[in-house]
Amino acid sequence: MPKMSDVARLAGVSTATVSRVLRNPDAVKTGTKEKVLEAIHQLNYQPNMLARHFRRTETKTILVLVPNIINTVFAEIVGGIEEQASKNGYRVLLRNTARKLEREYGSIEHLKQRQVDGMIMLSPQLDEATLNEISSQFPIVLATANLETPKIPFVSIDNVSSSYKATEHLIRLGHKKVGHITGPMDSLLSRHRNEGYRKALGDYGLDIDEQLVRRGHFSYESGFEQMMDMLGQNHVPTAVFAPSDEMAIGIINAAKEHQLRIPEDLAVVGFDNIRFASMFNPSLTTIAQPLFKMGQRSMELLLKKLNGESISQTEHLLPDELIIRDSCGARKKGKLLHN
Rank of each mutant, 00 (worst) to 15 (best):
T130I: 06
T130S: 05
T130H: 04
E133S: 13
I134L: 03
I140T: 13
L142A: 10
A143D: 13
T144Q: 15
A145Q: 15
L147T: 04
T149L: 11
P150Y: 05
I152N: 03
S156D: 14
D158A: 06
V160L: 10
S162H: 12
S163V: 03
Y164H: 02
A166I: 04
E168F: 02
H169M: 01
I171W: 10
I171Y: 14
I171K: 02
R172Q: 07
L173F: 06
H175C: 00
H175W: 08
K176V: 00
K177I: 00
V178Q: 07
V178H: 13
I181C: 13
T182H: 13
P184I: 00
D186E: 12
R193D: 15
R193I: 09
G196L: 03
R198W: 12
R198S: 13
K199C: 09
K199A: 12
K199M: 14
K199G: 10
A200C: 09
D203T: 02
Y204T: 01
Y204G: 07
L206K: 02
L206Y: 05
L206E: 06
D207A: 03
I208T: 02
E210W: 05
R214A: 13
R214W: 14
H217G: 12
H217N: 14
F218M: 01
S219Y: 04
S219A: 02
Y220W: 04
E221R: 04
E221S: 05
S222Y: 06
Q226K: 09
